[in-house]
């Protein structure tokens, strides 16, 4: 799996010692380059390539700039590398080559401690919500702050009061104010995704990486969730990369669309520019006219060489 082998020696040897040191005070080589100049993009990807050990090439020399505050939708058939691209950014999947910069910080060069610090600034929202089912809503939301507290604080659930206040505010905002102590597995799909959103925002990120947020939801809930993500992103001025199957939904909610096909960018432009030709380029031959529903991923001729890790 993409999650790195957790460096367990750290757990067994140094938890007791290091556990008391909050991440803030751990030595890092990098200061935080938060002074964002309007000229430099929030996220810059340069000739990113990912080859899986099986030999499948998921991404091939991808170049992409995402400016501050932009909502960008990533579309493309299954196996085109959308999921891999998103996971390369926070390095849940290790890129094979290329560079990724977040606010001029080169993510691809960070050691594991620095990577953890950097990950706090990149929040992720998942297709299957990826909540810890047996924990409560509040615990799941608070887990967004794990990068900011030390081990024993998180083990005994002693989060700073400011964090708890913020978590309550976020829960109200996503419409779950009344069940902080409900267990995550007792919620509906839409509610779970709202918890996922609250968890992501509690990280206080600069960028949201959103992986198929609506694929497991019914159409109405899907729109509500997309709207919520975009509203929140706008309120906080976040950049968003959302990887999505549903083309109409992508067109409605994003400011920019990037089409990925077999690991390469084949379309990059405004939602209005997605002509029939552009769609054919991304998804292959298909009668696009009747109703562009989200069948794109079912066209078998194109279900690519499948290097993509499906979540």
């Amino acid at each position: 799996m993409g999650s790195p082998n957790l460096g367990l020696p750290i757990v067994f040897v140094s938890v007791l010692l290091a556990g008391f040191v909050p991440n803030e005070f751990r030595p890092t080589a990098f200061g935080y380059a938060l002074a964002v100049t309007p000229l430099c993009p929030m996220l810059r990807i340069q000739s990113l390539t990912k080859r899986y050990p099986t030999g499948d090439i998921a991404l091939q020399s991808v170049n992409l700039d995402v400016p501050d505050g932009q909502v960008m939708a990533l579309i493309g058939p299954s196996g085109a590398g959308k999921s891999t691209l998103i996971r390369c950014i926070n390095r849940l999947v290790e890129p094979t080559s290329g560079q990724i910069y977040l606010n001029e910080l080169e993510l691809t060069r960070l050691g594991s401690a620095q990577l953890r610090r950097a990950r706090r600034r990149m929040a992720m929202i998942f297709q299957e919500y990826a909540l810890v089912e047996r924990l409560t809503v509040m615990e799941n939301v608070l887990s967004g702050q794990l990068g900011y507290v030390n081990f024993w604080q998180s083990w005994f659930r002693k989060f700073p009061q400011g964090t708890v206040d913020e978590a309550f505010r976020l829960l109200e905002r996503v419409g779950l104010g009344q069940f902080p102590d409900k267990r995550a597995d007792a919620l509906s799909g839409g509610q779970r995704q709202r918890v996922g959103i609250a968890r992501a925002l509690l990280q206080n990120p600069n960028i949201l990486l959103v992986d198929e947020p609506t694929a497991s939801l019914d159409p109405k809930t899907a729109r509500q969730i997309m709207r919520l993500i975009c509203e929140l992103a706008q309120e906080r001025g976040l950049s968003v990369i959302v990887n999505i199957h549903d083309v109409p939904l992508a067109q409605q909610f994003s400011q920019r669309i990037v089409g990925l096909q077999a690991g390469e960018i084949v379309y990059d432009g405004p939602p209005s520019g997605l002509t029939e030709r552009a769609l054919t380029q991304i998804y292959g031959e298909e009668d696009w006219n009747p109703e562009r529903e989200s069948e794109a991923d079912e066209s078998p001729a194109l279900a690519g060489t499948a290097g993509e890790r499906q979540s």
Binding site: M138, E139, R157, V164, D165, E172, G177, D181
Partner: peptide, 15 residues
């Protein structure tokens, strides 16, 4: 929603 969020609202995990 009957409960408005006040800053300082305590939270501890359910037992």
């Amino acid at each position: 929603m009957t409960q408005t969020t006040l800053p300082g609202r305590q939270w501890s995990p359910p037992n």
